[in-house]
Amino acid sequence: MWIAFINEEEMTENVLQTNILESEAIYIFREVVAQFEKPVLLFSGGKDSITLVRLAQKAFFPAKIPFPLLHIDTGHNFPETIEFRDRLVQKLGLELIVRNVQDNIDAGKVTEETGKYASRNMLQTETLLDAIEEFGFDACIGGARRDEEKARAKERIFSVRDDFGQWDEKNQRPEVFDMLNGKINLGQNVRVFPISNWTELDVWSYIEKEQIEIPSIYFAHTRATFLRDGLIWSADDEVVYREEDEKIEERVIRFRTVGDMSCTAAVLSNAYDIASVVQEIRQSTISERGARIDDKRSEAAMEKRKQQGYF
């Protein structure tokens, strides 16, 4: 964690020790509320969006978080994540909006992929764009970080999208100093990324330091799993496609990211508490998204999804 500059003799007084990343995120949250009429926080139930909730609490204390959370439920979420989501929302007295990918499938608006690598990841976009239109959200706050993926490394903190949710990656607004220009035209909206400059390790260290509660699947547990393409998949749930010859075995694993069950692989781990998770991340030689099959589809997978309005 980065600490701002304070003279040593002042350490003895009751002086605020500033974490630069945290301070930046709070500044961004406050800009969103001041510059937009209908912001919303996109909440996936993962560690990054949970961290966002804590930062939003800090930004507006003693007032409540002044915008709702929106969860685009693929129907393929880990049950632990959904339970966690509902508990958190209740505890903090927040407004939660849920929109289901399943509804679009049932209405025949989108067609589900089938087969070995089928995932509802792409279908989320459609549901998200519908929700933005339904509620007239002008700013959607998300937990994407630039260190996650190389197309994300290119994105601004205030990222303007057109009516179709598209990201015009070759024509982004300049973003100088820490000035954020949230002025938009009718039909446009902005995706906002308060933790753009955090790394995975920064997020985990923050969760540790702040003692933020996170879903149990982030910690080591025993689970029925099978192997495919050198990755470990949960065999607990029918939404994860498994071929007959893919043998089920119990393994002690944890999840490093919490996406859709169908595209999030597990890692072998003995990290039962947050301190050991931080330690594990520190020593890891593969990247966070290395276990996300949705990025492996092609070199440009993320960029293509973003152009279409994906987070």
């Binding site: 701002a4 500059f5 304070i6 007084e13 500033t18 301070s23 800090k58 204390f61 003693p62």
Partner: peptide, 19 residues
């Protein structure tokens, strides 16, 4: 008062987001 989240401080330095 100088607030950062739910805590009060006597003093804050540059770079801090405060209330």
């Amino acid at each position: 008062e100088i607030y950062f989240y739910d805590q009060k401080f006597e003093k804050a330095g540059r770079g801090s987001s405060l209330t």
